[in-house]
Design a protein around this nucleic acid. Structure first.
Lengths: 197, 197, 197, 197
DNA sequence: AATGAATGAGTATTCATTCAT
DNA sequence: AATGAATGAATACTCATTCAT
């Protein structure tokens, strides 16, 4: 186990990404060294540099791959009418995207300080803003804006933060989605100038 | 005569904490070196070690000081009856505590991965659980649990995450508190087994 | 039909030498990596190793090619009578050789420390000594030896060191040659035991 | 030998400079690693970083110290009348400065490619130009300019390049100085527009 | 109450080189 | 005639920590 010099097929790049994401999510970006990644894969550090230009580049490549669904969701959402139905659909899809790329999103949430000055930092920030813009109305009062933002956080919580709380993950996700829908619905039902009396 | 010309006298410990918190919150714990802290204070690194045993110890001391209000809130809450009024009061006080110790909480949120295996990690985790326990009913269904947890996150968002969004900080805090109260109220109104018909 | 559309055919070896010399002269030997050379040629590093055994070997091959004229000059000079005319002729030819292989000589001058313990180091050293021997008289006093050595340096200066000083390169070369001739003439006119009274 | 933990007096900084210059001159800047310097001094690499911010900084500090005499010579020369006597005096003093700081100048000459993009590169270039300006007449014809530049190179040769040629160093220095004076005198005697008939 | 001097373990990154295909 | 994948050894530099003074 581990000592057989496996003929290394062309999957090393993928294996690096997998191990890196696992470690980044487990221990954080800063605390994960390239030495550690290399050791787990039983290759040398230099091999990592054959496949990626820098440590940050490993993260970037992972992000690009796993982030695509969210990007597509944003593109789709931008073309829909801003109805309540659309908003709900966005929440549903986002929840699913979160669930699928859970380790990446967990990593992003737990390493905000680090991620902020990495090149994906900008992308992420823009993306959150775009997402909120899709589910809140343009001139929504502050309270409704908070409701919409909180809706997103509810889903993050359901998928990521409550990761090691008791309960079936899928049920937690559903519950969080329900709460999110509730919040966005409430925000939607009130016109831009507060409760439509 | 009356104005002290050398303000740095015996207060070095405090100054270290101030600068450290500022830098930890700005750049993250890992990326802030003791050299940097020392340079800002115009003392040597060794001076830091006169006042604190380790880097982590600096953080611990900051945490102990700023966290006291929350600890007191938990103690107080534990002795109150679990009425809706109590829950609301807890939310109000927690929101205030967040506001006062904003840099610390921001630091905690943005450095979760790092904080997790520092000694304050356990404390924080226990505290969040205790807090949720105070505002949710013992046998609340999953959805209500999510509501309560989300209520807390709403307040974190209002005080911390929305820090550089437009708008008056105090108003954002109030709006977040409002949403939080709403969520907890809804959770409270439904009995442990769903809607109290 | 007549014009070859793919000029890179069998000439890779030459192209490697060209690019390598350019980069060696520009940045120095140590600071020029094989990666850089390969990238400029749009081939892989391994391709370089198909054509050359080592990095040093690339340099050796360049040196061998461009150095031939000087070697021939030495051979020719060794067979001539040691008259002033011969000496002048050697200076003229050397100046021309310098001019033609300018990048190589520039490289040699600016990377003396590095070149010293490369295999061309010995060759170069021997060659300079041989050259001085051709233009100075066997038992010339120290001052005349310095004159002869300085004559060579004057030409190096004229072609290499003054490279980015103002003025037409060819004129600078001529001027340097003139000064060199002057020095050697002076050295020649004085017998082995000082001024021929 | 070497194992006694000598009480390290406050001379470490100086010792680093000494060893570094020795190695830089012997092997070149690029090929001298901080590990090597540290090992020779029987300290750790980190100790070097206590005293100097970077590898380049070590070189800078050496340069600043040893270069002072030349800087002073330039300042002095700038205030003198541009007579032949002054020029001769400059040559004499420069020759002495070269002799005293021989290892540094040798290093500079043999590592031109490297030094060029270090921070001392600019300083050196400016200095050579300033020096030539002091010994050549403002509108000297090209040949005279070459004479002056060659005069400097003659002295470099006498002190540095001929280092391991036979003969007493001091005598070689004197001979080189003589040749340099000769060249500058010749350049001086001819008016700005060629031979003063 | 603090400094000056140093360490040991670590980091990301680069390089010349190799070899099976 | 060349590539893709990898290595081993090195490099400059940083960090938290220690300790005699």
């Amino acid at each position: 186990m581990g000592s057989t010099p496996q003929p290394r097929r062309g999957n090393t790049r993928q294996r690096i990404q997998d191990v890196a994401l696992e470690l980044f999510a487990e221990q954080g970006y800063d605390k994960t060294s390239l030495r550690e990644i290399a050791e787990r894969l039983d290759v040398t550090k230099a091999a990592l540099y054959y496949h990626f230009k820098t440590k940050e580049d490993i993260l970037n490549s992972i992000f690009e791959d796993l982030n695509r669904p969210v990007e597509e969701l944003l593109a789709w959402g931008a073309e829909q009418p801003r109805t309540l139905e659309t908003k709900k659909e966005i929440l549903v899809r986002y929840s699913e995207a979160l669930s699928i790329a859970q380790p990446l999103f967990r990593f992003m949430q737990e390493n905000q300080a680090t991620v902020r000055d990495l090149s994906i930092g900008h992308t992420i920030k823009r993306r959150v803003i775009a997402l909120v813009d899709l589910i809140k109305d343009p001139d929504a009062p502050l309270t409704d804006q908070v409701r919409c933002f909180t809706a997103l956080m509810a889903m993050h919580a359901g998928v990521i933060a409550l990761r090691d709380a008791e309960g079936d993950p899928e049920e937690k996700r559903k519950a969080a989605l329900e709460v999110a829908v509730e919040l966005v619905t409430k925000a939607h039902d009130q016109g831009p100038a507060g409760p439509a009396a």
